[in-house]
């Protein structure tokens, strides 16, 4: 018997992306540069987060023509973003046969109450989270991969660190609880009890955990791996830098060799300018993308 779109198959692709770098690209040419630099997958989108911030306005799913052209250009998996709650954008992306859908806070939310019912899809979803409860709610809705949100388009790693430490710390804390205490913990995290039990027993999420939002340097990527990320998303950090192919290769190398500071040092040499950055602490409430989604 042959079964497609099982949870094993959905989360299995994320397993194969581990230890890798997923890069935001806006053109087939950028996708090719990412692939040639060793990206494990590309995220096809219309504008990188830094430009979405600068331009303002409503950020939506990308033009299918652009996504299809990127699929043509590379053989690595192609992901694409749908707005939070915009299940029709997700259906369109599924019809295009993208390999993963990112229900992303980087785009303007379409529903302020509900996320997409991800169980209804054959294509797997990755979702952002700032804490354990948020991650487990997304998994309960069918997400097959989680990424910490960070603060996209800033080049400031501080929010990524905060979210990764939060998620991992809360997982450790769950592990210290007695069975009888897990129901109250589930209530506190506003998360499904069966998933909470699973996380408490295993000491980890039941899906792969990547990090995103603010990675601009090889050292940033290695830091996030050391904090427990299983791979990294890099948005504006590569194609908003002065030498994207060189920086892309360097971030791939540092993600593989995060345990070896001499390799991270070697990868960090002579990369030219990093992306123009924004200090997250100076953003106003309304400018914080990580607050979208709940």
């Amino acid at each position: 018997m042959r079964d497609e779109a099982t949870f094993t198959v959905k989360s299995g692709l994320a397993e194969m992306l581990k230890g890798g770098v997923i890069m935001d690209v806006v053109t087939p040419a950028e996708a090719k540069i990412a692939e040639d630099a060793g990206a494990a997958a590309v995220m096809a989108l219309e504008r990188v987060p830094a430009d979405i911030r600068r331009d303002g306005g409503v950020a939506r799913m990308s033009d299918p023509e652009m996504i299809a052209a990127i699929q043509e250009a590379v053989s690595i998996p192609v992901m694409a973003k749908a707005r939070i709650g915009h299940f029709v954008e997700a259906q369109v992306l599924e019809a295009l046969e993208v390999d993963y859908i990112d229900e992303s806070e980087v785009l303007t939310p379409a529903d302020e109450v509900n996320h997409i019912d991800k169980w209804a899809f054959k294509v797997p979803f990755v979702c952002g989270a700032t804490n354990l409860g948020e991650a487990l709610r997304r998994i309960g809705e069918g997400a097959a991969m989680i990424r910490s949100k960070g603060e996209a388009g800033t080049g400031d790693i501080v929010e990524a660190v905060r979210h990764m430490r939060q998620i991992r710390g809360e997982i450790r804390a769950l592990g210290a609880l007695e069975e009888a205490e897990l129901a109250a913990a589930a209530k506190r995290h506003q998360a499904p009890l069966d998933v909470v039990r699973k996380v408490a027993a295993d000491g980890r999420l039941p899906v792969v955990l990547f990090c995103a939002g603010g990675i601009a340097t090889p050292a940033d990527a290695a830091l996030m791996m050391a904090l427990g990320a299983e791979g990294v998303f890099v948005g504006s950090g590569i194609f908003k830098s002065s030498d994207p192919p060189l920086r892309a290769r360097a971030i791939v190398e540092a993600t593989t060799h995060w345990q070896d500071p001499s390799r991270v040092a070697a990868a960090s040499r002579g990369l030219g300018g990093a992306m123009e950055s924004l200090e997250s602490a100076k953003l106003t409430e309304a400018q914080l993308l990580a607050q979208r989604g709940w």
């Binding site: 497609e4 949870f7 989360s11 039990r197 899906v207």
Partner: peptide, 27 residues
């Protein structure tokens, strides 16, 4: 046509106690 069928992952996940895959950065 080749006998494949989409599966209700919800049921599967419940049965497996969520995700049969040992993933995550724990340990």
């Amino acid at each position: 046509a080749d006998g494949s069928r989409p599966t209700d992952s919800r049921t599967e996940m419940r049965e497996a106690g969520i995700g049969p895959i040992g993933s995550g950065a724990a340990g």
